[in-house]
Amino acid sequence: MITLKGVSKVYPDGTVGLKNIHLRIEPGEFASMVGKSGSGKTTLAKLLIAEEHPSHGVIEVGGWDITRIRQRDVPLLRRQIGVIFQDFKLLSSRTVFENIAFALQVAGAPPAHIRTVVPQLLEIVNLKEKAHKYPVQLSGGEAQRVVIARALVHRPKVIVADEPTGNLDAINTEEIMDILRRINKFGTTILLITHNREIVNRLGKRVIVLEDGEVVSDVKHGKYRL
């Protein structure tokens, strides 16, 4: 599903983000990527959604070579990859329903489709009763569930979750991980980027360790080791 062949990223000021990464994440896989701050985790997430472009190497998502993706194709890529960020990125002036609907609106979805899909997603993330609340009225866990629902609107094949539990307490973290596990069970590939030792260990799934922009460990059923 995700393939990186010899990918490096060097920023204009000379900072090295990633060094010669070779990686393959299979369809339906749940992989965790761990590493210290500045190890290149977020750079990799940005490369996958074409927010940054690699200096060297090839990146493929779902068989699509996005290494030199044309600017006009970036929106299509972003509709195929659901992205979850630590800081939620929700619109404070819109309700939960409107925030999720927004992702469909920008893609030109008809209102009838929006009225059908959004309640289904709210059901999945268990937020039906909060549909008309504003982000400020939600807990951190609820806000992150809204983000997950929004990431699912286009039925993506891949979800990239960059520190999705970074701002959450243990209970909310477990809720979010439970939702991600359920989504993975339906066949969606998940790449979890995290610092959280406990959730990685509890998952018992593939663990990729990044250090100074390089993959230093890649274990099929691994534990958090730095």
Partner: peptide, 16 residues
């Protein structure tokens, strides 16, 4: 700027 960055994130075209 926040709304625009979210629009981009969820797949809005430049034209949109």
């Amino acid at each position: 700027r926040e709304e625009i960055s979210i629009k981009k994130l969820v797949g809005a075209t430049n034209w949109f």
